[in-house]
Design a protein around this nucleic acid. Structure first.
Length: 553
RNA sequence: CGGGGCGUAGCUCAGCCUGGUUAGAGCGCUGCUUUUGGGGAGCAGAGGCCGAAGGUUCGAAUCCUUCCGCCCCGACCA
């Protein structure tokens, strides 16, 4: 087909909105793909929606290919469904009420609704079932950001699997996992599958797909040899070995006046910072003061602490610290503390300097197992310079966007909603479920983050709004029309810039909009009865006769 | 929710501290002239409840109070 720029709503801007930071945010607004309605609320303009639909179509084809069935559930959901699974208390939910006072929820995701329908499954003979839809999700995000990167309303492709046993459920999970790789590859986005955070739930099978990007909210930790990759919230790096001072037979108290940071402590005592400990007292949600102990050069990972404690916690207050330790922050340590000590794995071997629980004093030669009895857990955030836990290679850290998430949750939803079936042996069992989500809008933004230059967007052909951007310069309107007809007949979608503008503006807009192939019909090419074909990515240009257009790529 | 910043033309911004003609610039927009392979030039125009509401004052875009909206950092993130 042929779209004429003179009639399209395609408002391009010379300047980016002042408050935009992320590259995708700036370029998508400037190039006329999206416009903001409110915080985290975006309209896809005609070109943006074309890209969105192309991404949807790729997802649809890959879902269909694994036997998943497309359907459509409503956005408005009776609150009772959410009460049945205990999720009605989630803070990000939008609640609405009808005129009669009935309560509804705008879903964050559709586990409740799909599991509700799964109650019609009666027999193992009907299993497995794979279902999906593209539907609006609403989330009362505390902080939308970065254009399309984090929004309050968006369309998600969410899939649900229902199986009779774990073996079958893993097969469904695996089908979706593999399909996701194909989807991201076809969309031209680099995405890495990583083990995701399981938090206090623990034990579930869950993977994130992270797309490296200039802006984003997840940090991907990756080994240079490709042996290892994980979200920084769960990643384990191997830190450098400390330079330990000579070992002592028992801890030895030293006066350390006005020394409160580990760096200062190391310097004051002439000891490697990595041979000191950092004491992080926290108060758990059930009111206990627990001491999290890590190496002096490390940072405590809050997500790992959550996993280790299996309960939420916050930093202890000064008063709580004083009461539990008899000293203030800066001189705290595990020796003599009679609460729970959770120590990082790096503290299993060796003697460290630790706070003496006496203001202005530390202990040298503190050894786990001898001087205090901790529970060991992985607590540290991986940092630059760590080595790969698999092969010892260097780890790199990349800022990423989460573009997909797959999750096996067993009977988490079917239990509450009573979705069960009769198995071959005549026993009633809960359906075992999984869910699988992709945000096409985030994929779109991730592609722009990964594929652009100083002049604008560079779309992969598979999701470009049009295949060819045909510029009709003055005097060459006729040959441009011919070229457009020929390309359209050959199956290409053509954006014909027939606007009455100077060439420079058309070129600038073409670069900004980022259609992979630009064809210029102008006086220069007219002499040869030809057009100039330029590759947006490489900038290579060649003159081609109109007759040969559409016969090859 | 904590911290920071910003609301003046479609976009980017100046003016505000130190109150006082008719509120400005660049880009964009409309008409005409000229130009035509990388956002060209000229002439003439249109376009504003200065985020909102109160207050102080003879007088408020400017000072004060409250509210609203948006952005960034953090917390949160099924």
């Amino acid at each position: 087909m042929i779209a004429r720029a003179s009639q399209l709503f395609l408002p391009t801007l010379r300047d980016a909105p002042a408050d935009a930071e992320a590259i995708s945010h700036k370029l998508l607004v400037r190039a006329g793909y999206i416009r903001q309605v409110g915080a985290g609320l975006w309209t896809f303009l005609p070109l943006g929606w074309r890209v969105h639909r192309k991404i949807e179509q790729i997802i649809r084809e890959e879902m269909d290919a694994i036997g998943s069935q497309e359907m459509l559930a409503p956005v408005l959901t009776p609150v009772e469904l959410w009460e049945a699974t205990g999720r009605e208390k989630i803070g990000e939910l939008f609640h609405v009420t009808d005129r009669a006072g009935r309560k509804f929820i705008l879903p964050l995701t559709h586990e409740e609704t799909f599991t509700f329908h799964a109650r019609e499954i009666q027999s193992y003979k009907e299993l497995p079932q794979l279902w999906y839809h593209f539907q609006t999700k609403d989330r009362d995000e505390p902080r939308p950001r970065g254009g399309l990167l984090r929004v309050r309303e968006f369309i998600m492709k969410d899939s649900y699997s229902f199986d009779r046993d774990e073996k079958s459920a893993y097969e469904s999970f695996e089908k979706n996992r593999v399909a996701y790789h194909r989807i991201f590859e076809r969309c031209g986005v680099e995405a890495h599958e990583v083990k995701a955070e399981s938090g206090i739930m623990g034990g579930e099978l869950t993977y994130d797909f992270l797309a490296p990007s200039g802006s984003g909210e997840n940090i991907l930790v990756r080994c240079e040899n490709g042996d290892y990759s994980a979200d920084s919230e769960v990643a384990s790096g191997v830190p450098r070995a400390p330079k330990f001072p000579p070992a002592l037979n028992a801890p030895e108290e030293v006066e350390t006046p006005n020394v409160t940071t580990c760096e200062a402590l190391g310097e004051f005592l002439g000891v490697d910072v990595a041979a000191t400990t950092k004491a992080m007292p926290v108060t758990t949600e059930d009111g206990r003061v627990v001491l999290a102990l890590i190496r002096g050069d490390d940072r405590l990972s809050e997500s790992k602490l959550l996993s280790a404690l299996r309960i939420g916690s916050r930093p202890a207050t000064d008063d709580e610290i004083r009461e539990a330790f008899g000293a203030s922050g800066g001189s705290l340590g595990p020796v003599g503390f009679n609460g729970e000590v959770v120590a990082d794995l790096t503290l299993q071997e060796g003697q460290f300097v630790a706070g003496a629980n006496k203001d202005g004093f530390h202990l040298r030669g503190v050894q786990a197992g001898r001087d205090y009895e901790p529970r060991f857990a992985d607590l540290r955030e991986p940092i630059e310079g760590d080595r790969c836990p698999e092969c010892g290679g260097a780890l790199t850290f990349l800022t990423t966007i989460e573009v997909g998430h797959i999750f096996y949750f067993a009977d988490r939803y079917s239990a509450g909603l009573g979705a069960s079936f009769l198995d071959e042996d005549g026993t009633e069992k809960p359906l075992l479920g999984g869910s699988y989500g992709i945000g096409p809008g985030r994929v779109l933004a991730a592609v722009v983050e990964q594929s652009n230059d100083e002049n604008g967007i560079i779309w992969p052909d598979a999701i470009a709004p049009y295949n060819v951007h045909l510029l009709a310069l003055r005097g060459a309107e006729e040959i441009a029309e011919q070229a457009a007809e020929r390309l359209s007949a050959a199956g290409y979608d053509v954006l014909l810039d027939d606007r009455d503008l100077r060439p420079g503006e058309k070129f600038a807009d073409a670069d900004l909009i980022g259609i992979p192939v630009r064809i210029t019909a102008g006086k220069k090419s007219l002499e040869d009865g030809a057009v100039d074909v330029r590759d947006r990515r490489t900038g290579e240009e060649r003159r081609v006769s109109v007759d040969s257009l559409g016969k090859n790529a």
